[in-house]
Design a protein around this nucleic acid. Structure first.
Lengths: 149, 149
DNA sequence: AACAATTTAATTGTACGCAATATGATTGCT
DNA sequence: AGCAATCATATTGCGTACAATTAAATTGTT
């Protein structure tokens, strides 16, 4: 590193590859659990936001999940086609589309109850260890987002 | 949680969403650095594997990055079109396609030298903290991959 | 040697993820 | 009221990811 800019980047050294490959490993573990519910991982994230607060606008879902309308519009149309949500223009502001759970979408919540427990089990860690790792990642993520918004 | 399977999954509690959203935050920080090199993040991962060992077969790259030929074949064709690599059938085993860096591809390595330092800076952490977090994630990833192979 | 099983890439189809752009609704300013 | 600026969603285009299938080459077995 005679040029003072550091050695050539090595795959195994990169935090980013660790995060990236862990994401894919997690989604792979989720996959059979979610396929049983007829959801993809991204659709599961959207359903979780709606289980917490129904009737959110597309914009609000996007802020919670860090996703934009290019991703959400087609995804929400697929959830609508699957009968999990309804998409309706807000009468008081026609720019917004509010997403509301159908009875089916509400009912799916109960079928998803065991998933966090299953995932914790697959992680092979205690709830406390997982919580600490999660908090550490959230700090990193927020730091990164504040660095390049 | 009267049914004993746990409460309804909440977005903010999920380790998986923390990992998932941190991946996207990292890729967002990489983006301007890589665009300057004409690479996407996935292409950068492939280039890093080749900078470490040139002439790998598609299969080997896939094992290192946990990607399959459905992802790699078109990606490698784009890297070839960009003049970074050559794709050539191995004469001793015509099933395999070996990927070799061009002179341009080799030269790109030097332009990428500063990236790890830039990323460390954006993380706002010490090299040691980053290394610990990375090791923790790799343990989790390997545990997950062994749970559902 | 012949042929079944295996291996490696490529292909096809579905679903993100995001940049850039378009469209229609609302707000702010004068 | 009129109109520019802003806002929310939708659309288009490109590049992953990955399952499932196909095609060609190689290996193993008899």
């Amino acid at each position: 590193m005679a040029d003072g800019t550091g050695p050539v980047p090595k795959l195994a050294d990169q935090l980013c590859f660790a995060v990236y490959s862990t994401t894919h490993a997690l989604i792979r573990v989720y996959k059979p659990l979610l396929t049983a519910l007829g959801l993809t991982y991204s659709q599961y994230l959207v359903m979780m936001t709606l289980w917490q607060e129904d009737g959110l606008a597309v914009k609000q879902i996007g802020e919670l999940l860090h996703l934009d309308s290019g991703t959400l519009t087609p995804l929400l149309k697929r959830l609508e086609a699957a009968g999990q949500v309804r998409r309706e223009r807000d009468p008081t502001d026609e720019r917004q589309v509010r997403i509301r759970l159908t009875a089916t979408g509400h009912a799916l919540r109960d079928k998803a109850r065991s998933i966090p427990q299953d995932m914790l089990c697959a992680s092979g860690r205690s709830a406390d260890e997982v919580r600490r790792l999660k908090e550490d990642l959230v700090r990193l993520r927020d730091q990164l987002n504040s660095a390049v918004p």
